[in-house]
Design a protein around this nucleic acid. Structure first.
Length: 277
DNA sequence: CTGTAATCCTGCGAGC
DNA sequence: TGCTCGCAGGATTACA
């Protein structure tokens, strides 16, 4: 499940391969994504130059420049959903199943969006600035610079449990099920605790744990549980270092108590009943 | 303001 | 061995 570390890895892989490249053609499958690629976007994007590849939360942003350049800031916005893969390969690489959009580049490389479960999306906007402003308004800060007083306010004034708070993209952008569970474990906090039950010290421990877990996962190129691969097709490595996620019944790495699994905020939530209070 | 659940979808693994 | 079925969950929407 691509969360911030996985998306960041894709962006870092794609950036050197895409920036300063021109899009020479586009293909899309007839199979409909949840938010389908619109065929009318093809003629807009043809010949455009890729000027930057960025990330915000779990969103991938590809900045484009038309010829002639305009003030419109055309933008390609991609979300990997559950099983999305966004990779650059040589154009003659055989097409696997479930490739929904493919962009050919002038250097013979091909940018492919593949997504077996079709939860993902690839969208084009002629006026990217407005879209990005709206997106930013709906997203909380990145995990690396969560203001302590902001986090304190959002968490300690809420009756929602920690799991729900961490999954809420308007509070922090980029955390999903895996890293929410891992952050709670690292902070030694039970994911079912209501936000308002946290002491200031605990709240800060959680904020720190989120940052640390996300950073370490980025360092290991994310977690490949099943489908995730980076922008150059490589698997992640952080799945080998997960303490609780997907480890139901296995011993806690700290105290050996079997890891428990419960549904919280509609998601399976893994935690150590002994370490996490 | 909350929480819960349905929706989209395919592949996999548990269980029989 | 082969089949069915439940589950995995990011974001959005609906509804209690």
């Amino acid at each position: 499940m691509p969360e911030l570390p996985e998306v960041e890895t894709v962006v870092r892989d794609l950036r050197p391969a895409l920036v300063s490249r021109r899009i020479t053609s586009v293909q899309h499958s007839r199979q409909k994504l949840r938010y389908p690629w619109q065929p009318r976007w093809n003629k807009h994007i043809l010949g455009m130059l890729i000027t930057a590849v960025r990330r915000r939360g779990k969103w991938i942003l590809v900045d484009l420049r038309g010829n002639p350049a305009s003030a419109d800031l055309p933008l390609l916005r991609v979300h990997l959903g559950m099983t999305g893969q966004f990779t650059v390969v040589p154009g003659n690489t055989p097409q696997p199943d479930h490739v929904h959009v493919a962009f050919q580049l002038e250097n013979g490389q091909e940018l492919r969006f593949r997504d077996p479960r079709r939860f993902g999306r690839v969208e084009f906007f002629t006026h990217g600035g407005e879209v990005e402003a709206a997106m930013n308004a709906a997203l909380g800060p990145e995990p690396f610079d969560i203001p302590a007083d902001y986090f304190h306010d959002r968490v300690r004034n809420s009756q929602r449990n920690l799991k729900a708070l961490l999954l809420d993209q308007t509070i922090i952008a980029g955390v999903g099920n895996i890293y929410a569970d891992e952050a709670c474990f690292r902070a030694r906090l039970h994911p079912a605790r209501p936000g308002q039950s946290l002491q200031a010290k605990e709240c800060d421990r959680l904020r720190q744990a989120i940052e640390t877990v996300i950073q370490r996962a980025i360092d290991r190129r994310g977690s490949t549980i099943r489908d995730y691969i980076g922008g150059s097709g490589l698997r992640g490595q952080f799945q080998n270092e997960l303490a609780v996620y997907g480890r139901t019944g296995k011993p806690c790495p700290v105290c050996q108590t079997p890891i428990a699994c419960r549904r919280l905020a509609g998601r399976s939530s893994h935690f150590c009943p002994t370490c996490q209070r």
